[in-house]
Amino acid sequence: MTPLDEQSVTVPVRRLAHAEGLDLPAYATTGAAGMDVAAAETVELAPGARHAVATGLVLAIPDGYEVQVRPRSGLALRHGVTVPNTPGTIDADYRGELKVILINHGTEPFIVRRGERIAQLVLAPVVRAAWRVVDSVPLTQRGDGGFGSTGM
């Protein structure tokens, strides 16, 4: 057993009818942080087009966790196809079908084929914030320098 096996969290998953025969999300290697998830439909994405691609999966993410949806680097590099709201967040209390929003930034139409790996899913712990209104915040070296200010 590897240290990661000892840290695994069980996530119940329901497979909808249009996902029958497809693999469940899986890690491609022992060191992978993300699980590849497959499309449960075939759809053509014209250049510039977006589509919420069905996976046919309904997740019961445990309280205290989220699933982050991230692009697959090969699709982005070879075809310009990516996840526009990266990372997308699937909340623990969502019980609808997991769909992956894909956008085609390429110059050619791209066909998403049923069974094709379209994104990565990362199970991540969630830390909830508790806001406390104060009159001032501690100063830092950066201060209020905004976009690009640390690269100058």
Rank of each mutant, 00 (worst) to 15 (best):
2 T>V: 02
5 D>A: 12
7 Q>P: 04
10 T>Q: 12
11 V>M: 07
12 P>T: 01
15 R>Y: 11
18 H>G: 07
21 G>F: 12
23 D>A: 14
26 A>S: 15
35 M>W: 14
38 A>P: 02
40 A>V: 02
40 A>P: 03
40 A>L: 08
40 A>H: 13
51 H>Q: 03
52 A>I: 03
53 V>T: 10
54 A>D: 13
55 T>Q: 07
56 G>F: 09
64 G>C: 13
65 Y>A: 02
65 Y>M: 08
67 V>L: 04
67 V>S: 03
68 Q>T: 03
72 R>M: 06
74 G>T: 09
76 A>K: 07
76 A>D: 01
83 V>I: 14
84 P>S: 15
86 T>K: 07
88 G>L: 03
90 I>M: 00
91 D>L: 05
92 A>C: 03
94 Y>R: 05
97 E>T: 10
100 V>M: 02
103 I>M: 08
103 I>W: 00
103 I>C: 09
104 N>Y: 05
107 T>M: 10
107 T>E: 15
109 P>T: 09
111 I>L: 15
114 R>A: 15
115 G>K: 11
117 R>P: 09
123 L>S: 09
127 V>C: 10
128 R>P: 00
131 W>D: 14
137 V>D: 02
139 L>F: 08
140 T>G: 10
140 T>M: 13
147 F>G: 05
148 G>D: 11
150 T>I: 09
